[in-house]
Design a protein around this nucleic acid. Structure first.
Length: 285
DNA sequence: AACAGGGGCAACCGCCTAATC
DNA sequence: AGATTAGGCGGTTGCCCCTGT
């Protein structure tokens, strides 16, 4: 009946991931791609549940992640999207390549909420906070939906203009003004994102691509969908930058580690492995 | 220099939905 | 068709680090 159990929860490790665990997971995913998270911990030699592995990979280890603070334009986009979608972080994240729902959620809770409150905007309703008694008239206006124009500082507006030009004809404000939150049709990222538009933003993640940008294209991982702007990762405060030393460490002794894995779980050797030119990972980036 | 408090973020928890048997 | 599980998602927690005193 039904599927096999995900993982027996006895003896599974919890808490922060160690570098060794990260290494095992990265090596496994890079070699075998993402499939069947239930099987990943066993095959990768990890004492974690599949769910934990998936989370670690999607939120932290994925090489296409941008890291570091959200840029001004990204932040504004989050605000706009939140006005439409509410706390649907995964939907919001799908509009921001290289950002995870967890990251956006955290950023919302720690930065944007405060920022909006400081500006006199209610983060929940995206309406001005009335310090006095609530006015029914305003309530009525809220029914006609959100108008967050009041939170547009000049810099934010500039960022928005820029965002407009670099992303799509999709203008959150227009949609917001036309629909109530729950009526907004969902728009797929592919519909709103213009591939690889260079940004003139001053954000940390907006520098132009470099020659090394072809690295991931050259590496053809069957199960990866490298986002169009993955090259930006190299210029942002990303895993590829500030954590690069650790990636070096992870990759340099990869062979050695694979041998270790083979001893941990012989079934790993039966998995189809992709050829990965590790030299290029080290020197090309 | 030491301590306390707060902020930020990674990871866990629990629920929901889709997939599978 | 119903039972069961995997995967996905949002909410929450707990730890670590930074800043102020």
């Amino acid at each position: 009946m039904g599927r096999q159990p995900c993982c027996d929860k006895v003896g599974l490790k919890k808490g922060p991931w160690t570098a060794e665990e990260d290494k095992k997971l990265i090596n496994f995913i890079l070699s075998n791609g993402q499939c069947c998270w239930r099987a990943v911990p066993k095959l990768a030699g990890l004492l974690r549940c599949g769910k934990s592995c998936r989370l670690r990979w999607t939120n932290y280890l994925r090489p296409d992640l941008k890291r570091g603070l959200l840029s001004e334009s990204e932040e504004q986009m989050v605000i706009d999207l939140h006005a439409q979608l509410g706390n649907r972080w995964s939907k919001i994240a799908s509009h921001l390549p290289g950002r995870t729902d967890n990251e956006i959620k955290n950023h919302w809770n720690t930065h944007i909420k405060k920022k909006l409150k400081k500006m006199g905007i209610d983060p929940l309703t995206h309406k001005p906070i009335s310090t006095e008694t609530d006015q029914p008239q305003q309530e009525g206006e809220q029914q006609t939906c959100l108008s967050d124009t009041s939170l547009q500082s000049s810099s934010v507006t500039e960022a928005k203009e820029e965002e407009k030009s670099m992303t799509s004809p999709f203008d959150p404000l227009e949609v917001v003004n036309g629909f109530c939150t729950d009526e907004v049709p969902l728009i797929e990222p592919s519909e709103i994102l213009v591939p690889c538009a260079p940004s003139s933003s001053t954000s940390s993640s907006s520098s132009s691509s470099s020659n090394s940008s072809n690295l991931f294209q050259d590496l053809q991982f069957p199960d990866f969908a490298w986002p169009c702007d993955y090259n930006n990762c190299h210029n942002s405060m990303g895993l590829w930058d500030d954590d690069f030393v650790s990636w070096d460490l992870l990759i340099i002794d990869d062979d050695d580690d694979n041998r270790k894995q083979s001893t941990v779980d012989p079934s790993l050797s039966q998995c189809p492995r992709m050829v990965l030119d590790q030299e290029s990972w080290i020197y090309t980036i």
